[in-house]
């Protein structure tokens, strides 16, 4: 589904990613962990098409197409979804209006009929209730005055509405209390399926108790230094990130 090959990215001349390789098969959940500043959020931003990143080398292919060549809205319509680390407040536009525009843009792209107001509302109610939010939220301006937890749940709601093929969750767990974390994780787990993949970016192992990954990758200084299964996350939890730099990187450098 997603192939990242030797991806080098810089911001304002400063190298952030130094050769990322990542293969995501349909139906799998990949966790990307790493210390602050390792390049996790840059990877998420580049996949979603945020401005300001210089692709110096490498390629990203999504279902056989060159992802980096697409505008952000085309990526979204093709099935890429980014749950923002810091969801943006947009006063003046209701979540309802926003999501209806979005879902119909996606449906149009897929050759499906647009949803009527009634159909949209029915779908929105189905998707919002399991997240512990009221349909009233739809009438509020996008993220305006939302608590941190509400913003993150709103991201999961949007993801559920748009039914992406690849969802990238950028530190969706940061700042959540345990109850909100469970709600978010349940939301993600209910969307897991054979043809939907997730890249879950997180600083903390805690989230992975609830969203159990198939693969765990450790990002350090712009490279994936280590990959493994869910046990790697547990190891990181007990040992911290320090040992990666102390042990794994020198070994790799020495060709061990």
């Amino acid at each position: 589904m997603l192939q990242v090959r030797n991806l080098h990215v810089s911001i304002d001349g400063q190298k952030i990613l130094r050769g990322i390789d990542l293969d995501v098969q349909p139906g799998t959940v990949h966790a990307v962990m790493g210390p602050n500043g390792s390049g996790k959020s840059t990877l998420a931003s580049v996949l979603a098409g945020r401005d300001g990143y210089e692709i110096e080398e490498g390629s990203v292919t999504f279902n056989g197409q060159d992802l980096l060549d697409m505008d952000p809205e085309i990526r979204a319509r093709e099935g890429v979804f980014l749950a923002f680390q810091y969801p943006v407040e947009v006063p003046g536009v209701t979540t309802m209006y926003f999501m209806r525009e979005a879902i119909n843009a996606v449906r149009k792209h897929r050759g499906q009929a647009e949803l009527s107001a009634g159909e949209f509302l029915k779908l929105a109610r189905e998707k919002i209730n399991p997240l512990g939010m009221e349909a009233d939220m739809l009438k509020r301006a996008i993220n305006e005055g939302f608590s941190g937890g509400e913003k993150k749940r709103s991201e999961i709601f949007q993801m559920a509405m748009l039914e992406p093929k690849l969802a990238v969750l950028d530190e969706t767990d940061s700042g959540l209390d345990i109850d909100a974390l469970k709600i978010v994780a349940d939301g993600v787990n209910s969307l897991r399926g054979a043809d939907r993949s997730f890249v879950v970016i997180t600083h903390y192992q805690r989230l992975l108790n609830y969203i159990v990954p198939d693969y765990v990758h450790v990002l350090s200084d712009g490279r994936i230094e280590l990959s493994g299964d869910k046990n790697l996350a547990l190891q990181l939890e007990s040992r911290g990130y320090g040992w990666i730099n102390d042990e794994v990187v020198p070994q790799a450098a020495a060709g061990v």
Partner: peptide, 21 residues
């Protein structure tokens, strides 16, 4: 970018934000 990342075209996003303003 937030609006575009949900599938809304660049021109449409501009309109929506102008309206929102």
């Amino acid at each position: 970018f937030y609006l575009q990342s949900r599938g809304i075209g660049a021109g449409r996003a501009r309109n929506l934000l102008t309206y929102a303003f």
